[in-house]
């Protein structure tokens, strides 16, 4: 496949990019779009640091050929922040000390977001299972799980406030 122009939708914005078939999504996000939040770590699909959401589902961008992500909604960690307002999951990670070196963090947060979107009221065990594809060498995972539990509560509260405010 020669270099072809392909349409991508990243964090809600459309991009026309020149891609070759052998390029992975993580390379395109980082090198062509300058979105450095998505980390390149093991590069072989075993650590989860490169996790992005594609149409709401968590996928490994190091193991995704960029051409296969055309025309799909891609969410990177940069897409969670609204201006300078942190997403509740990001804030919870900060507040609960769930970040040490920060390298696993974008992948962790995106996996957590995909999980909480479908499971708003999880147990600790369910959170651990949902994040099993994301490795962390620093924290020992305890505070990460606590942060996600806390974020679930905050998101739930906001949802209930919003529902009540409609009346």
């Amino acid at each position: 496949m020669k270099k072809q122009i392909a349409n991508f939708i990243v964090n809600g914005r459309p991009y026309e990019l020149l891609v070759e078939s052998h390029m992975t999504l993580v390379e395109v996000l980082r090198d062509q779009l300058g979105l450095m939040g998505t980390k390149f770590n093991c590069g072989v699909g075993e650590c989860g640091a490169c996790t992005v959401l594609i149409n709401g589902k968590p996928r490994l961008s190091c193991s995704t050929l960029a051409v296969t992500a055309r025309e799909k909604n891609i969410l990177t960690i940069e897409g969670l922040t609204e201006g300078t307002t942190l997403h509740p999951i990001q804030k919870a990670f900060v507040d609960h000390g769930a970040i040490q070196c920060g390298f696993c963090t974008p992948g962790m947060i995106l996996s957590a977001k995909a999980f909480l979107d479908d499971n708003p009221n999880p147990s600790k065990e369910e959170i651990k299972e949902a994040l099993a594809g994301n490795l962390c060498r620093c924290t020992g995972y305890v505070k990460i799980v606590e942060a996600i539990l806390a974020a679930a509560e905050v998101i739930g509260k906001k949802r209930r406030q919003f529902d009540q405010s409609k009346y």
Binding site: G43, C62, S63, L65, T68
Partner: peptide, 26 residues
């Protein structure tokens, strides 16, 4: 053949297989 790619792409990245053609069924 490319379906999910979670075996194929990492192996290609490691150089373990080097196909001339990839046929996606996605």
């Amino acid at each position: 053949v490319l379906a999910g790619g979670i075996d194929l792409v990492p192996r290609m990245r490691k150089g373990q297989i080097q196909p001339e053609y990839v046929v996606s069924i996605q």
